[in-house]
């Protein structure tokens, strides 16, 4: 089976990802001290999403997986997004 031959990530790549993650953590802490009103939450979530993407793509080697896993992962995230956003049809308009 060719497809079972999986990509091996080098230590260097992994270390670079870790460095990026730590830098982003610093950034998110730093940003939290700056008052930007309504923008604070979206920025914090954007940084968290970037970090999560790094972990997913490299540590969990989602980048090197087949279509089945990639698509189904996106479906899961979509479902989660629906769960949260559709609840706001109720909560936001009460």
């Amino acid at each position: 089976m060719k497809e079972n031959e999986q990509h091996i990530l080098s230590y260097k790549t992994l270390a670079l990802v870790l460095a990026a993650l730590l830098v982003l953590t610093g950034l998110t802490i730093g940003v939290s001290y700056v008052h930007m009103g309504i923008l604070n939450v979206p920025i914090a979530l954007a940084i968290a999403s970037t970090k999560v993407s790094f972990v997913l793509l490299y540590f969990m080697h989602l980048k090197f997986e087949g279509r089945a896993i990639k698509i189904s992962f996106l479906c899961t995230i979509c479902f989660l997004a629906i769960m949260i956003s559709f609840t706001f049809w109720d909560v936001a308009y009460r």
Binding site: F79, I82, F86, W89, D90, V91, A92, Y93, R94
Partner: peptide, 22 residues
């Protein structure tokens, strides 16, 4: 089927917008 859950809740005090959408 995953988009319609709140149609069980029309009378439970949900917002009218939600009733309409669901």
């Amino acid at each position: 089927g995953s988009l319609v859950w709140a149609h069980h809740m029309y009378t439970s005090g949900m917002s009218d917008t939600a009733v309409f959408v669901f």
